[in-house]
Design a protein around this nucleic acid. Sequence first.
DNA 1: TTACACTGATCGCGAACGGTGATCAATGCG
DNA 2: CGCATTGATCACCGTTCGCGATCAGTGTAA
Lengths: 308, 308
Amino acid sequence: MEIRQLRYFLTVAEELHFGRAAERLHIVQSAVSQQLRRLERELGTDLFTRTTRTVRLTEAGDRLLPYAREMLALQARAREAVDALRAEQAARVRLGTSSGLGERLDTLLAALARSAGHAPLELVTGSTEERLAQVRTGELDATLLRGERTEPGLEFLPLWQDALRVALPAHHPLAAREAVELARLAELPLRLSPPARNPALHDLVLRSCREAGFEPVPGPEFTNAQDTLAAIGYGTPSWTVFYAPHAEQLPVPGVVFRPLRDPEPTLRTYLAVRPGPPRAALRALIDACNAAADEAPGTPAAPQDARR
Amino acid sequence: MEIRQLRYFLTVAEELHFGRAAERLHIVQSAVSQQLRRLERELGTDLFTRTTRTVRLTEAGDRLLPYAREMLALQARAREAVDALRAEQAARVRLGTSSGLGERLDTLLAALARSAGHAPLELVTGSTEERLAQVRTGELDATLLRGERTEPGLEFLPLWQDALRVALPAHHPLAAREAVELARLAELPLRLSPPARNPALHDLVLRSCREAGFEPVPGPEFTNAQDTLAAIGYGTPSWTVFYAPHAEQLPVPGVVFRPLRDPEPTLRTYLAVRPGPPRAALRALIDACNAAADEAPGTPAAPQDARR
DNA sequence: TTACACTGATCGCGAACGGTGATCAATGCG
DNA sequence: CGCATTGATCACCGTTCGCGATCAGTGTAA
């Protein structure tokens, strides 16, 4: 018993005429005959009594009729449900976010809210790898991403770049300075997250230190912002770095954030998307990203890929 | 979207494992993959996110799931409904009846009620032709039938034979007699139904009259028992015939029924069935017919076909 | 009663589909 | 870094599906 057969059955039951039913179904009459014969054989009962002049439902056909109707209605509703979901999803943007975006994210959301196609936005967190994989599979429309990256099959739109801030104990002598020259941190242990977690940041910090003429003293691992800040504020003196916009928003119990100098490490933020023309909702998101990059304080990024 | 695909979908959704689902469905894994791919292509959405290690429902799959469940449940119920009907029909006997059976029918019903497999009996009326056609198509299990008949593809079991009674106006001189010699009716108009309605009866009456040495005077057509009896009782004197058991049960306002003599016309009653071994319910009916033929008053018919 | 139009069943054919078994590719575990 | 597991893919074969042509039964009209 397949849905096709039930549809044919229902049509014949309504028309009581094989030829007209076939016409309504856009197939030839013999196909209707065959499918119904097959269905009847499977059920072990005739569904119609047919002469060449009259077609009539049998008792069995009469019993089957309401079920056939309901199944076809159900099938239609199932289709509608799936289609409705697709429509919802088409009008929705799913954006992967990296942590520590600070005010950047607010600016971006505000820009998107202002834009014409202000489709509902869904923010999704996850590791960089997960987010990129989800962009690739289409589960995400795009993801924000810190640092350069070469990923075949994905496109990276540069948005803005953020400086890093050093986080120091408030009571440390260097905390008194407006900005901190990197070389002055040579003796202080550095708390960094493992390279795998954020290679771009890891590389940037090490490179900058070397440029400033020293190899940093590895301190305890950077686990998460709250614990690490607490450890810096009240434990053994040490330092770490935060993205400037993130630092602006962090509570500062015993910790101060200072700009870095000589060199001033900065990391670019990208929007990773699938190649090809973006759909309307994503188009609006990209525009909002560019608008946020333009209007936000701090260093703007390289010329934008307009993707028009 | 076919039911097969929904069944596969449901199984995979339950197992979250293509291999196990295939096993449960008694097909190979690749077939499951293919059908689901086809379904997903038709719906325009993935239903599962699969890696080689994990299978997970997508949002679309989640939406489809309850519909798939319901459709399969509905399909099962449809099957049950049809099967239940077949079971009902298997335990039911549909018997075509000819009119005017009188007490014969009561005897038959009583015999059937006494029999072991007292399946519900359904009596169906209709013209002789209709009833025979229905026996042929299986719509009827059997039909009672008056008079000889040659119908290829049907079997006729002789049951009993009934004499005819002449119906006369109560005030007619012949009504005074115990029995009426046919020849005495030569001058009286005869009301008969048209030959097509009941050829056997028509032939029998004409043949008997000729045997008695006269050609009957055709009167108005026999339409139905009530009207014809009224016409005989209160209109122009005329006569007609009834089957003896029928006559026994008819009200007699102004009409009397008398046996006929020289000759005494009798008509045999048959049970028409499809050839081949009868199913249990029909078997019981045939037995009851034979029992009724044996015990009933009047002339029994020829030796029975036991059909065992 | 005969001729005819209508209608469902049947048949042969080509294309599509469904299931199988073999193989490939990726993924997570040890 | 192997290795077992697992879903996807492919070639193949039997079945199903739809088509067009034709047949056969039926009711109507001449």
